[in-house]
């Protein structure tokens, strides 16, 4: 199996991009998006922005530093397969949380 090796220039660009996103992560930590969003989704927005940056960085690392870009077809299949199973774990567990009654149950003593 031949291993695709990208030019050094590519790795430098990717590294610089990762540094940029790291600085961006720190920067947006000082911004409270809750002030700029409709009531109730402010905190969600903070999380969404931070996670989007982290996800972008993860994609760069996996694609370039882990050589998934340019590898054989089976590698992306493995990556996507793993992600799908992770989504299954999150979605099914989340479905329980979203539909679970969260009120406190107080048992009533029978007479």
């Amino acid at each position: 199996m031949s291993v695709h090796v990208a030019p050094l220039k590519t790795y430098i660009y990717v590294f610089l991009a990762l540094m940029f996103f790291t600085v961006l992560t720190v920067g947006v930590a000082f911004v409270n998006f809750a002030h700029h969003a409709p009531k109730g989704i402010g905190n969600v927005l903070n999380d969404a922005v931070a996670m989007s940056i982290a996800l972008t960085k993860a994609v760069l690392v996996v694609a370039f530093f882990m050589h998934v870009k340019g590898s054989t077809k089976i590698t992306p299949v493995v990556i996507w397969g793993t992600l799908i199973f992770m989504v299954i774990l999150f979605v099914f567990t989340g479905a329980d949380y979203l539909t679970r009654p969260m009120t406190t149950f107080v048992p009533v003593m029978s007479q």
């Binding site: 099914f92 479905a95 329980d96 949380y97 979203l98 539909t99 679970r100 009654p101």
Partner: peptide, 11 residues
């Protein structure tokens, strides 16, 4: 366990 009834039905 206290899991949502709806989730239980799907499972």
């Amino acid at each position: 366990s206290g899991q949502s009834l709806y989730a239980g039905a799907v499972f």
